[in-house]
């Protein structure tokens, strides 16, 4: 983190690239989780449509999966805030 912020400061010293880098970094970090969450929710909807009686269980598991996947995007968000 120290190295990152020094890097960010150096970048800022030359030209203020920190926010740009943070923005690009966050955008990259959001790609994977975006696809992942799409998959999870899509498959869950499929499962719920196929077996409506197990919808409750599927929903719970879906939220868990979304939470785990989302964490990666959120780490990207936090890192973006750290380096900007």
């Amino acid at each position: 983190m120290e190295a990152l912020s020094i890097l960010a400061q150096d970048a800022a010293a030359v030209a203020d690239f920190g926010p740009i880098g943070a923005g690009i970094g966050y955008g990259l970090a959001a790609i994977g989780p975006g696809i992942g969450i799409g998959y999870i929710v899509g498959k869950s909807v499929e499962a719920m449509a196929r077996q409506p009686e197990s919808a409750g269980m599927v929903r719970t598991t879906m939220f868990l999966g979304v939470a785990f996947t989302e964490a990666i995007a959120l780490i990207g968000f936090v890192v973006a805030m750290l380096v900007q």
Partner: peptide, 11 residues
Amino acid sequence: SLAVRLFANML
């Protein structure tokens, strides 16, 4: 991840 998930979502 428990802490960061909650914190980052709300932030």
